[in-house]
Design a protein around this nucleic acid. Structure first.
Lengths: 202, 202
DNA sequence: TATTATTGACTGAAATTTCAGTCAATAGAT
DNA sequence: ATCTATTGACTGAAATTTCAGTCAATAATA
């Protein structure tokens, strides 16, 4: 499908709008999202947003979809082969508390989506799928750890994954709300991992 | 201070407004809260809300304060003296996932407050204090459990309390978002408690 | 290939909707 | 008669959505 130059540029614009939307959601929340702000941030006319997306709600849906895709891509990124499963998992979970704007952005959008899903049924399937992806990745890494000996034998991958992801979500929301510092959050996560997966290998 | 009939009635009205606000927040979130809806729900005029509270923001602050007080009162409710510390803690944490509207209401308001605090610094102290109360209560019950033998010796009350409360918050947000069923949430909580506090006594 | 028609991306401004917040007037208690 | 609680109608400022129209890229035609 030879995309014409015009279509190419349009796709890029759409992408710019979504990126701008993500930044705005990260800064003001889903409910605090203003279409005009998005347009300004993306450097385009407000009405163009309505041309590409049906409505403000459609824009939100689209940005959540994109966020899921980005997160999946991030998970797929092979995290240094020489690390054992346990270390990879550590990196993945602790990475949730990064100060890097683009990582924090994902965390905020995700947390906003979950919170909003309680009032907006349209978001539920999206949030469900994202949660499943995340949990699957964690339990896969636990199995890797079981195989390479970095995780204590007898660990239940699915159960530990469910508990750890829920814990991370709780810690993350406290962290985003400034109730918990980054260091404390990571310390709590580490102690929980030790309980779930046995003492870390040296 | 002999409260006159007028003051009495006014106080009651204030209470009705706050109760209505809590219901609306539970249904639409803090960000979805509209003062006209509150007025309709409480059966009073919009302007009366501004008479009793300075602004929409003041109303939100007030409802969060009230929610904290309600929660504290709920915590204080002596949970049957014959239960050991462990059982009391179980009841307390599992109670978070009750289907009772008034309990679920507390959970939603709390979760909304936390989510909103990420964008509204005015809410941070309130959320902090509520988190501290909650964590203190949990760690106190763990100490009770240590004393009566229902919690494994060597358990660190503060650490376990921090991890358990974070876990409950994560489970709760998934539960409210319909990502997790009540039964699953409780099962995960139980398995986590077993890890933190040792096997439950028979 | 030069000319003409058609489509797709995009804009600016106006229409509509949505809300928080105000105020003067009134009812009711003391 | 005074003060307090309460009302209902109103305002103003955002914010969302719609729409008529421009311009450049592509497709069709000669």
């Amino acid at each position: 499908m030879a995309r014409t130059a015009r279509a190419e540029k349009a796709a890029e614009t759409r992408g710019r709008i979504l990126a701008a939307t993500a930044r705005m959601v990260a800064g003001h929340g889903i409910r605090g999202l203003r279409v005009e702000d998005v347009a300004k941030e993306a450097g385009i006319a407000v009405s163009l947003i309505y041309y590409h997306f049906k409505s403000r709600g459609g824009l939100v849906q689209a940005v959540l979809l994109r966020t899921n895709e980005l997160a999946l891509a991030g998970l797929a990124e092979t995290p240094v082969r020489q690390l054992d499963g346990r270390a990879q998992l550590s990196a993945l979970l602790e990475g949730e508390f990064s100060e890097l704007p683009e990582v924090r952005e994902l965390a905020v959008v995700w947390s906003e989506a979950t919170a909003s899903a309680a009032f907006d049924p349209a978001l539920v399937p999206l949030v469900r799928e994202a949660a499943r992806n995340w949990e699957d990745t964690v339990s896969r890494l636990i199995r890797t750890g079981l195989a390479d000996g970095s995780v204590a034998p007898g660990t239940d991958p699915a159960g530990s994954a469910a508990r750890l992801t829920a814990l991370v979500e709780g810690l993350s929301s406290k962290w985003l709300a400034s109730v918990l510092g980054r260091a404390e959050a990571i310390a709590l996560l580490r102690s929980a991992m030790a309980r779930e997966l046995g003492p870390p290998p040296p």
